[in-house]
Simulated scan of single mutants.
Amino acid sequence: MDRIRRGIISGHHLPGAPLREQALQVEYGCSRAPIREALRLLERRGLVTHEPRHGFRVREASADEIRQIYEVRALLEKQVVLGLIGRTTPTLTAELRAANATMKAHRAAGDVERYIEANIAFHVILRAHAPNEPLGRALDVVYEMAEPMRHALLQKSLKTSMAAEQHDEIIALIEADRVADAAEAMHRHVFTGLPVALGELED
């Protein structure tokens, strides 16, 4: 499953493209059963769609679906930060700064994959300091659905991404124990990418 998933996220399998079991068997050197199981799992994770008699396709998000993904993620990420009320520590801000510095280094190097990994690590640190399993599970689903879109956008706009600078604002507010303000800043931060994502859909 991981190899097919990576092919979808990287754009090797394009949005809307059919995922024919026989072709995937040849490409990935697997028998039919694991290919079918992988496609079913990817469907549950929101990366693949299935229609009876038409088979599997890479999910192709509409403008409405893109907006919904951003809206849900913004609300969930805001709630993660609100969970830090009464839990801010120097260790938390130090970890966030380290992850953000790594993001900036990978942006300077033009490394999209590692930039995304560092970005996810930043958000995972917030979750780790305010554990909430249902919230974390919901975010995992949203992250997965957004992953191909995130890769496609950053392949074109990595150098101009301001996510790390927006993270700096969030870190400063957390350090000042202004957690509610940091949560609002997180909400704005997530929505920053929406116009770019919608513009990509129109291109």
Rank of each mutant, 00 (worst) to 15 (best):
P134H: 12
A197Y: 05
P148S: 10
D168M: 02
E65P: 01
Q68W: 09
R97D: 11
E117S: 08
R188I: 03
L42G: 03
N132C: 09
R6N: 14
V48N: 11
G136D: 11
R59T: 06
I174H: 05
A94D: 13
F122E: 06
H12D: 13
I35T: 05
L41S: 14
K78G: 03
D203Y: 09
L19M: 09
A109M: 00
V81I: 13
A130E: 05
G199D: 02
L158G: 03
G29F: 06
D2Y: 11
V80P: 03
M186K: 04
G199Y: 02
Q22E: 12
P134A: 14
H187S: 00
A197E: 01
R53W: 05
H12M: 15
L194V: 03
E133V: 13
V179H: 00
L41Q: 15
P34R: 04
P131D: 12
V141G: 10
L41E: 15
R127Y: 05
E175M: 06
P52L: 08
A23S: 11
R127L: 14
A164W: 04
L139D: 04
A121I: 01
P18C: 08
F56E: 02
T49Q: 13
P34D: 10
M149P: 00
G16F: 06
L19F: 06
I4L: 14
D111A: 08
R5G: 09
A98Y: 07
V179P: 05
L47S: 05
A183E: 00
L154K: 03
I125E: 08
L14F: 14
Q79G: 11
T102V: 06
E165D: 11
A164N: 04
E71A: 15
E200N: 11
A180I: 09
A38G: 14
A38T: 08
A182H: 03
R3W: 09
A94E: 13
Q79F: 09
G83C: 10
S10R: 13
L14V: 14
R150G: 00
T102H: 10
G83H: 08
E77P: 00
F191V: 05
H13I: 07
L194T: 01
E200V: 11
G11C: 13
L194F: 02
A185N: 01
A152S: 14
P15N: 13
Y28C: 04
Q79V: 12
E71W: 04
E144K: 05
Q25S: 06
Y28F: 15
A109K: 01
M149F: 06
E175N: 03
L201I: 11
G83D: 04
L47D: 07
Q79A: 15
A121Q: 14
L201K: 04
K104T: 10
L82C: 15
P34C: 08
I8K: 11
V26M: 07
G193C: 02
E37A: 14
P195F: 08
Q25G: 06
M103V: 06
